[in-house]
Simulated scan of single mutants.
Amino acid sequence: MNGDVDAICFDLDETLCTYSQPGADVLDRAFDRAGVARLWVLEDYHDLYGDYLAESTDVEDLRRRCFADLAVEAGHDRETGRAVADEFAAVRDQDAVDLLPGAREAVEALSDRYRLGLVTNGAPGMQRTKLEAIGLADAFETAVYAGYDTPPKPAPEPFSAALDALGSTPDRAVHVGNSLSSDVAGARAAGLRSVWVPHEGRIPETPDPTPDHTFETVAALATPPW
């Protein structure tokens, strides 16, 4: 990495953290925590997901609406479904999220040299809960919750908002993420250099769009220059 870089932005999901439990297991735990027998399976939720997109304010609102209707179909009241949805969110974003190996070391090492920001697609409350769960709540000078604060990645606006807060410019910044379609494409659209860290090291021969740098793990970022 050239010495003219003064800011680095990170994606969150599958770049710094990952869900450690399958969704079906999370749902089973949610039913247990809510004190309710299993009334539906995860596939029922997935089948209905699209029906709630237009009327929901975020994924947590969508889940509460959907689970409420599923509870009614199972012969229970809507509040039962909402209670299960709330427990699902608590388990998913607090107990079932893990820091990826080397992520903390990379963030800490880079924070000594650069101003750091977070640019993540996702609801602010949900993403903040994940940051707290993995111990990175105070690691970034600014956080942009794309899709809520700005249009979602790969739009350039979330990157521009982060750089404005960091006092940097696209030609002096890098974005790190796992997604070619949102992170690499979005960084390119905003004029930043991109670092691609494919989840679980899956690297195609010809990634499209082409990132400026590719690493098999986020841990490799801890030892610049690169």
Rank of each mutant, 00 (worst) to 15 (best):
T214W: 06
D13M: 02
A143Y: 04
G23Y: 14
P22F: 11
D25F: 09
P158A: 03
L163A: 07
D212R: 02
T223E: 13
D28A: 13
T206L: 14
R65L: 09
L116M: 00
P156W: 05
Q21R: 13
A68M: 07
T57F: 05
T217S: 10
E141N: 01
G81K: 07
S182G: 03
R63L: 03
H175I: 03
Y49I: 12
Q94A: 15
Y145E: 02
A146N: 01
D77V: 06
E73F: 08
S160P: 03
A139K: 06
G125A: 13
A103D: 11
L99M: 14
P209H: 06
G35D: 10
R92S: 15
A220C: 07
G117V: 05
Y114E: 05
G122A: 01
T210V: 13
D164S: 14
H213A: 11
T169H: 12
R33I: 12
A109D: 08
V174L: 13
I203S: 05
F88Y: 15
A30Q: 13
R65P: 08
G75V: 05
G75L: 10
A190Q: 07
L48W: 14
R65G: 08
Q94P: 07
F10W: 08
H76W: 12
D32N: 07
E60A: 13
F31N: 03
F31S: 03
D112L: 06
G75I: 02
H76S: 14
T223N: 04
D32G: 02
V41G: 13
W196V: 10
Y114P: 05
F31E: 09
L39A: 06
L100M: 15
A71P: 02
F215A: 04
G186W: 00
V144E: 03
L99F: 07
F88Q: 10
D112A: 09
S182L: 08
D208N: 10
E157S: 14
